[in-house]
Design a protein around this nucleic acid. Structure first.
Length: 108
DNA sequence: CGAATGACCAAGC
DNA sequence: GGCTTGGCCATTC
């Protein structure tokens, strides 16, 4: 799309809202859906500003781990939200880990 | 416009 | 899985 960089956030929000409960997606995956597979960092950056309008907890890193630590939303909360949705989250060495093989969302 | 920043990613040890 | 290195890119200063 042409200079739709203004819709970058909107597009991220749009795809994020499509992630069904009980599933998870990776930052790189979302970035790929927007045609900018290398802008994974921006996805996280965008989500940070929309934690109240999208299921941000369903987006994790490519390793299946919750790397959040620098913001006001503790990874402990994200893990709790995911578990509450039916996603099995394992705590390992202080980090939360999700089995992508079983819970990764497959966009149509 | 240049430089720093960040909820990332892949590759190598 | 954990740590380090190099690279991406939009946003902010």
């Amino acid at each position: 799309m042409k200079g739709d960089n203004i819709d970058f956030f909107a597009t991220v929000a749009s795809w994020t809202r499509k992630i069904p409960a009980g599933c998870v997606a990776t930052y790189g995956q979302i970035a790929g859906l927007i045609s900018t597979p290398r802008a994974a960092r921006m996805v996280g950056y965008a989500l940070r500003q929309m934690t109240d309008r999208v299921p941000w907890q369903r987006v994790i890193n490519a390793s299946g781990m919750i790397s959040i630590e620098n913001i006001d939303y503790p990874k402990d909360l994200q893990a709790k939200l995911l578990i509450n949705e039916g996603v099995k989250v394992t705590k390992r060495n202080g980090n939360y880990w999700v089995n992508l093989k079983a819970y990764l969302w497959k966009p149509k």
